[in-house]
């Protein structure tokens, strides 16, 4: 048996770095966040409808922020899922090789645009456009933020769904064509059902990105702190609130910890969503056999 290289003794340490980092992050965020509830009621934090952290006494009702996060992400998904799936189907099944070679990199470029640039484009172009087209008093709304988020999560949804669609064995399609089915029927009844677990993963990753996105919703969401009346009112989701307020609050105070508590809420939301997505993923994988 030959001697092991020195570096091989250290490799396992690096192997666990991601686990360590993940635990460090979760523990840090939760310990800092939980401190809030030594002096503020958890119930009031979860159900309160007023977020006024600088008032005396502070009001830390996070419900409007949570609702805003949900509205913005759901709007984003309503737009991004059809667009992303259509892109995936087009690239995966309909486009010829030349078009495919152009479209795929374009989708990748869309994914690489920094979120602050999306936010910037949102302010200078999308918000005024939304305001004008929908005759709104203000262009920076939850809907506008959702629209921007849709294009930010589209590449994730499109590329992972496309992988799932192209991974469906061609023999299924041949069988369907041989029965006299058209390309469309084959797509709807055979290919997409077979790709469903992959598509669910794609959508859940896209949704995760939308929930956690900060800069674009901060810049385009309009920043209003009250409970949103409609998707067309200005709002400030959880992420945007943390980003906007952390810079102006003293370290170690109630407000500081409350912002960590918001991050806990965000992490829980993402986790719950992932568990649900995983459940459906498993269910459809089993159905497929």
């Amino acid at each position: 048996m030959k001697k092991r290289a020195v570096i091989e003794y250290f490799l396992p340490i690096f192997g666990y770095i991601a686990v360590v980092a993940l635990f460090a992050i979760v523990i840090t965020i939760f310990t800092e966040g939980v401190t809030t509830f030594k002096s503020y009621s958890l119930w009031k934090f979860l159900t309160g409808t007023a977020w006024r952290p600088t008032e005396e006494p502070a009001k830390l009702g996070s419900l409007p922020l949570l609702v805003s996060t949900c509205i913005v992400s759901i709007v984003a998904m309503i737009i991004a899922i059809p667009l992303g799936l259509a892109t995936a189907i087009y690239i995966g099944k309909l486009a010829n090789d030349k078009v495919k070679d152009i479209l795929k990199p374009i989708v990748e470029l869309l994914a690489s645009i920094p979120s602050v640039v999306y936010g910037f484009f949102g302010i200078v172009f999308i918000a005024p456009l939304v305001q004008k087209v929908l005759h709104l008093p203000i262009g920076q709304t939850g809907f506008t933020a959702g629209l921007i988020l849709a294009f930010m999560s589209l590449p994730t949804i499109a590329s992972i769904s496309e992988d799932a669609i192209t991974a469906v064995p061609a023999s299924f399609e041949w069988a369907s064509f041989a029965l006299g089915a058209s390309k469309l029927e084959t797509l709807i009844h055979i290919v997409i059902p077979a790709a469903t677990p992959g598509i669910i993963t794609a959508v859940s990753l896209g949704f995760g990105r939308a929930i956690g996105e900060t800069m674009a919703v901060l810049m385009v969401g309009g920043g209003a702190l009250g409970m949103p009346h409609s998707i067309f009112s200005p709002m400030r989701p959880i992420t945007a609130t943390i980003a906007a307020e952390m810079g102006e609050t003293p370290v170690g105070g109630l407000h500081y910890h409350a912002l960590f508590a918001l991050a806990c809420e965000l992490l829980l939301l993402v986790t719950i969503f992932n568990v649900v997505a995983e459940y459906f993923h498993q269910k459809f994988t089993r159905m497929r056999g």
Partner: peptide, 26 residues
Amino acid sequence: VGMVFQKPNPFPKTIYENIAYGLKIH
């Protein structure tokens, strides 16, 4: 003109649905 392939290629569906599929298509 029906066709049977080299490797068995049932759809990833139930036995029943495999056969019902062609009927629905038509």
